[in-house]
């Protein structure tokens, strides 16, 4: 079992410089914060050069008090990486975006990103540039609002007729 020669975050820093905002171990795995516009390039590099072929999960978190309120979180896995078990090597990538700012889509890197990016659009209202079909996923087309935002009430927005539908 050999360790990778350069730690992953240093390798990313060497390639992407200031686009890598921070990196630390959080919740047991390496968490890299990256600049919004560099996200697709970083993902492509992680897949092509570092073996992160499996996009485990893509989701978002809303922090309405912050200047850029949304955090989009990517969980990646490098199956069969040297020195790690088959599903072992994992990394978390994060980008923060403000309301109305799009994020580059990573559907060109992993096909697995198609539905999750649509879901994030649907439930948070974060758009992804370059997504082949960014439409609502879980909610009906005419739905107004993005319910996983923290300021969206649990019981839903009151509708005009007051029917509660």
């Amino acid at each position: 079992m050999s360790e990778p020669e350069v730690p992953l975050d240093e390798a990313l820093r060497a390639d992407f410089g200031e686009a890598i905002e921070s990196s630390r171990v959080s919740g047991g795995i390496l968490t890299v914060r990256a600049r919004r516009d560099a996200i697709a390039g970083i993902c492509a590099a992680l897949k092509e050069r570092h073996g992160f072929t499996f996009l485990v999960d893509l989701c978002a978190v809303d922090f309405p008090g912050r200047e850029r309120r949304f955090e989009v979180v990517y969980h990646l896995c490098a199956p069969g990486a040297p020195g790690a078990p088959a599903m072992g090597l994992r990394v978390r990538l994060k980008a923060t975006v403000g309301e109305g700012t799009p994020l580059p889509s990573v559907t060109g890197v992993w096909r697995a990103a198609r539905a999750p990016e649509r879901e994030v659009w649907d439930l948070f209202g974060i758009s992804f540039e370059g997504h082949p079909d960014l439409s609502r996923l879980l909610l009906p087309d005419g739905f107004e609002g993005h319910p996983l935002r923290r300021d969206f009430p649990l019981e839903g927005l009151p509708d005009e007729e007051g029917t509660g539908d």
Partner: peptide
Amino acid sequence: ELAVDLGVTGPALRACGLPRDLRRDL
């Protein structure tokens, strides 16, 4: 390769010949 790219896991992935299982790997 397509299965991995689509995020397929579990028996559907193992049926492709990839022995990946979180019970053993993590």
